[in-house]
Nucleic acid binder design. Structure first.
Length: 264
DNA sequence: TCCTATGTTGTCAT
DNA sequence: AATGACAACATAGG
């Protein structure tokens, strides 16, 4: 579900389908008002008669440039995704907000739950500042990554998932990074050396790039990736041992105990 | 029936 | 100021 690689895949999907066509109507499904910000009336008014011109992404947030001015901002939360289709009968079951284009196609924002949302923003910079959103995990340099984490008095995993520090890492990417980098999620940030952080940073880049290249399609992920093993009965690719399931920072974490070193 | 879920946000406590 | 625990949001699926 939508973390950085998934949202980047949605962004590419949007770029390949829905850009440069005039929005002739916008529909809201019943009981979906909460997904529209700042309000359904304002969102609809802003989108009508405009085109989606281009897209950008910071972390799990997608920014879509509108032809007049400003941005449509989309957050997919846990179950959101886009569909671009022509026939009304192809409308997804969980469609919540639907943009209708003058070429007869439709772009729907779908979600099983009412968690994600569509919002408006004047500029990406304003939005990023208001939300205190950190640098995108694929953009941040090692030095900022290191400086942001090295002095934290906290278990590492919750800090990796803190969007104000580095944006885009959710539960599965955090587990994946820590697994491949051989670091226990409960390790204290301030006990890792610079080289440990460098290793973690390089691992993060590799995992994110690979995931994005594979369009976040887990079925195509390398066999050693943890994400497909994060389930009951899952075993470590490297050691064959059963993965431990524990809670770190309130989130379920899968750990290969003998592989991942605890820094404390 | 009960529990969990890969996200965010707000409150309250330390 | 930082950090953590917890609830709320909402719903499908095991």
């Amino acid at each position: 579900m939508p973390e950085l690689p998934e949202v980047e895949t949605f962004r590419k999907y949007l770029d390949g389908t829905a850009l440069d066509q005039k929005i002739v109507d916008v529909n809201l499904k019943p009981k979906s008002e909460k997904l529209a910000r700042p309000s359904w009336a304002e969102l609809k008014k802003k989108l009508l008669h405009q085109k989606l011109e281009s897209s950008a992404r910071i972390g799990k947030y997608l920014f879509i440039r509108l032809s007049d001015d400003g941005y449509l901002v989309v957050h997919f939360a846990m179950t959101g995704y886009f569909s671009y289709y022509k026939d009304a009968e192809d409308e997804p079951k969980y469609a919540k907000i639907i943009l209708h284009f003058d070429n007869g196609f439709h772009l729907s924002y779908n979600s099983k739950r009412k968690f994600g949302w569509l919002d408006l923003a004047e500029s990406i910079e304003t939005f990023q500042k208001e939300k205190d959103l950190g640098q995108d995990a694929l953009e941040i340099g090692f030095e900022d990554f290191y400086q942001g984490l090295k002095n934290k008095k906290s278990p590492l995993k919750p800090r990796l998932m803190d969007q104000n520090l580095v944006a885009g890492i959710g539960n599965w990417v955090a587990d994946e990074m820590l697994y491949q980098a051989e670091i226990h999620p409960s390790s204290n940030c301030n006990k890792l050396s610079e080289e440990d952080f460098r290793h973690l940073y390089n691992t993060m880049q590799k995992i994110l790039k690979t995931s994005v290249e594979l369009d976040a399609d887990y079925d195509r992920f390398p066999e050693h990736f943890l994400v497909n093993r994060r389930e009951k009965g899952g075993t470590c690719y490297y050691t064959g041992e059963p993965l431990e399931v524990l809670e770190v920072g309130g989130r379920t974490s899968y750990v290969s105990k003998s592989r991942q070193k605890m820094f404390q």
